[in-house]
Simulated scan of single mutants.
Amino acid sequence: MKVVIAPDSFKESLSAERVARALADGWRSVMPEAELVELPLADGGEGTTQALVAATGGEMVRCRATGPLGAPVEAVWGRIDATRAVIECAAASGLDLVPRDARDPWRATTRGTGELILAALDSGARHIIVGLGGSATNDGGAGMLQALGVSLLDARGAAIGPGAAGLAQLAHIDISTMDPRLAEARFEVACDVDNPLTGAEGASAIFGPQKGADEVLVARMDAALSNYAELIQRCLGLSVASIPGAGAAGGLGAAFLAFLDAELKPGIEIILDAVEFDWHLQGADLLITGEGRIDGQTARGKTPVGVARRAMRCRVPCVALGGSVPTELAVLDRLAQEGIRAVFPILPGVSTLEEALADAERNLELSGRNLAAYWCCSQP
């Protein structure tokens, strides 16, 4: 009996690694002889670095980097192997690094993300996976580019300042000073939004308010990103303003597209390829996945559906577990069409949210035990 356990994290409660371990412990209590493959996963957002490092036997690397508002922060990136690395932009440029009353997307910078890329390059990495999402910034990746050596200059020939405020002054782009190692590097960017760089559906309008921007500031930031897009067109001959995903992470997607020749792909697909998920599925009798909340959004490509689609192609049955699960038959039917044959809640009874979060590990272990027991009952 081979079971692949491939969950996402249960946010605010357990990492994907701890979720997988708890389910495996529960299953082994009934079927100690089973072959259990623990593959903690993420879909490109929070937890991507930890999940990839855990699944590949890599290591977390700590370093100092420039935070969103310029002060140094302690950040981490992941070394998968000698030539591969994984970085989350939120590690150095994330909204969680800025107190709510100090959020300022007009000034916030992605310089720290560029510094993490430099650290990965220094280590020998030439294939870098980047998770977009959770940024505090709206600078179009300008700070990252400056850290990587790109010259972003104002009309006087001086380097522009940080944030969208700097982009508003941008008059010339010079890539001749960019770190030459970047020409040898391949960037895969996990991007699960399709917003363009500018306009009503762009980075400023859609994501600016959650980063602290009012209507007036949203308009100023959109104008700054429009100026940026025009300069990219004029200096590099590339049109990025309307490309789906260019507006991800405050326009960081546009920088990866225009300057680093990156591939913007669904996050879960990048992660599954990186951990050789299809190889692990070979010979499996069952796939168990899950996340903290399973709902209609899950079917739009989040981790449980991403793994279920792969399992369906390999004819491996898949079940999902969640702290919160849908009760609408239409949602359950849609998940079934994507390969999730059954969805189970892990809560054994009525509880408060605080109790559910605190007891998640024990509840997952019990759920793993019950799944194994049910499997045994279903076999002839």
Rank of each mutant, 00 (worst) to 15 (best):
R315L: 09
D273H: 06
A360N: 00
R362K: 13
W375H: 11
T303M: 06
G323R: 00
G267K: 02
A356Q: 00
D261V: 07
E361V: 13
G323L: 00
A284M: 06
T352V: 03
Q379S: 02
S351D: 00
Q337L: 15
A330D: 10
A342G: 10
E263N: 12
I270K: 07
N363H: 02
P304T: 09
V275C: 05
W375Y: 10
A320L: 11
C318T: 14
F344I: 05
P304K: 06
D285E: 13
L347P: 00
L364K: 08
F277H: 05
Q337F: 15
E365Y: 08
M312N: 07
G323E: 01
A311K: 04
M312K: 09
Q379A: 03
N363Y: 06
V316P: 01
K265H: 03
T303L: 12
T352E: 01
N363V: 01
E263V: 06
N363I: 02
E338C: 10
R313V: 03
K265W: 01
G292N: 07
Q337D: 13
N370C: 14
L347V: 00
A311G: 02
A373H: 13
E338F: 09
T289P: 09
R341W: 11
A262H: 04
R362T: 05
R369K: 12
W375F: 15
D333A: 12
G283N: 09
L366I: 05
Y374D: 08
L286W: 04
L286I: 03
D285P: 10
A342V: 06
P304D: 07
D273S: 11
C377W: 10
K265P: 00
P304M: 09
G292T: 01
A356F: 01
A336L: 12
P266Q: 09
H280I: 07
P317Y: 08
A299G: 10
G267D: 05
K302L: 06
V307I: 12
D273Q: 11
L329C: 07
D278S: 15
E328C: 11
C314V: 03
L335P: 05
A373Y: 15
A373W: 13
S324L: 05
E263P: 06
G290C: 15
I268M: 13
Q337P: 01
C377H: 10
E263T: 15
L272I: 04
G306E: 07
I288V: 14
R300Q: 04
A336S: 13
I346F: 01
P348S: 06
P348A: 11
F344N: 02
L287N: 08
N363K: 03
G290I: 02
D333I: 05
E361S: 09
F344M: 14
L357I: 02
A358N: 04
E263F: 07
S351A: 02
I340C: 02
D278R: 15
C314W: 15
L357D: 00
A284G: 03
E361H: 14
L264M: 04
A284R: 11
D295V: 14
L335S: 04
W375C: 04
L281N: 01
T289V: 06
W375I: 07
E338T: 04
R341F: 07
G368P: 06
D278E: 15
A274D: 02
E355W: 00
V319K: 12
Y374C: 13
E365R: 07
A284Y: 14
C318F: 11
D273G: 14
E354G: 05
G368T: 07
R313M: 15
L286R: 04
E291Q: 15
G296F: 08
R341T: 01
A330G: 12
W375M: 10
